[in-house]
Design a protein around this nucleic acid. Structure first.
Lengths: 122, 122
DNA sequence: GCCTTATTCAACCAATCAGTTGTATAGTGA
DNA sequence: TCACTATACAACTGATTGGTTGAATAAGGC
């Protein structure tokens, strides 16, 4: 069995492609077949099938069976887990920032010292 | 419209690598130099520098200047935007699922009856 | 002015990726 | 059975990626 739980590598990787995000967007409105998913794109069915495989491997999509069709639908939990991870993360960052603000107050290395770096020749 | 705004491709792509997620985790506890970031990894400084470049290009990290050092720190907003995108998304999905549930009133785990367009035979 | 430290740039390499075409499998309907 | 539809598999290709080594750049300390 392939990893059905959330694989952060695979999940983020899957969502890093705009075509796949579009597919996921489409699936958010309900299940669809490969053919239906492929329609808006200028892509072969095989390419879309591959994208679906990537999403499925990442645990974001599940496939069913309806005669010759293999409709895809989103797997809610994975998306929830991903969101959870990011939320945790963001909380952590915010906290860190507050600590940093408290430490620095007014003195620190100024955020962006615009160093006009003249490029030298070789 | 913000041109610095988040690039979903780049942001998700950046977070799809475990080394980069570890770097981001480290940075969530405060800024760090390339050398400091590289320490826990069995990687060259150049490799870590490249990872930082990826994160910077994605808008997730900002670089500063402190003498020879170029400390990296997280860029809070990007992380917030990413989380926001996913939250929106998840909301959409949940809504879709509720609609689907209403239609099917069935066990979503069973692979067989996935769509309302069931045409199976045999 | 050298050294030393911190970081990046440049070139390269192997692996992976997104796409293609062509073929094969699975299921329906006659 | 045979034709048709929907999808997957296989092999290939060019581009990208994650890593390396080696050289260059930037800044400070002596």
């Amino acid at each position: 069995m392939r990893t059905t739980a959330l694989d952060l590598d695979a999940a983020f990787g899957a969502l890093s492609d705009p075509t796949r995000r579009a597919i996921v967007s489409r699936l958010a409105r309900g299940p669809a077949t490969v053919g239906e998913l492929a329609e808006p794109f200028d892509l072969t069915l095989q390419a879309v099938s591959k994208h679906l495989a990537v999403l499925t491997r990442a645990g974001l999509v599940e496939r069913g069976r309806d005669a010759q069709r293999r409709p895809a639908r989103l797997s809610g939990p994975a998306l929830g887990d991903l969101t959870g991870w990011l939320l945790d993360f963001r909380a952590h960052v915010t906290e860190g920032y507050e600590r940093l603000d408290a430490l620095l107050a007014d003195d620190p290395q100024t955020p962006s010292p615009p160093t006009p770096r003249a490029r030298r020749k070789r």
